[in-house]
Simulated scan of single mutants.
Amino acid sequence: MDWNIDRKISTVTVDNCSTNDVMMTMSMDKLSNTSLLLGGSLFHMRCCTHILNLIVKDGLDVIRVGVEKIRESVAYWTATPKRQKKFEETVNQLRNPHTKKLGLDCATRWNSTYLMLQTALLYKDVFSRLKNREPQYKTVLSEKEWEFAREISGRYKISVLEFYFRKLYGDKTEDEVDKVRQICYDLLQEYQH
Rank of each mutant, 00 (worst) to 15 (best):
H50W: 04
R150I: 01
C48D: 03
M45N: 03
I183A: 09
D175L: 13
K85M: 11
E151M: 13
R133C: 10
P135E: 14
S153D: 07
K131C: 07
P81V: 09
G59F: 15
L36A: 06
T173K: 09
K69Q: 01
L31F: 15
K69I: 14
Q182H: 06
Y164M: 03
L104P: 02
S32P: 00
R64N: 09
G59C: 12
V65Y: 06
S153H: 10
N33A: 15
D175F: 12
L122K: 14
E176A: 11
E68V: 12
I152K: 00
G39L: 10
L37Y: 08
H44K: 07
H44A: 02
K30A: 08
L42N: 03
T90F: 08
P81F: 09
N132G: 12
W77D: 00
D178Y: 13
R150W: 10
H98T: 02
R64L: 04
V91A: 11
L104T: 07
Y169V: 10
K82G: 03
Q136N: 06
V12I: 15
K8S: 09
D2R: 10
G66D: 02
F165H: 03
Y123N: 03
D2I: 14
R129I: 02
L141V: 00
Y114S: 03
F163E: 02
W77F: 14
K30P: 01
R129H: 08
V126C: 02
S10P: 01
L161T: 11
N111A: 14
P81I: 12
M23G: 01
S27P: 00
Q93T: 02
H98G: 08
L102H: 08
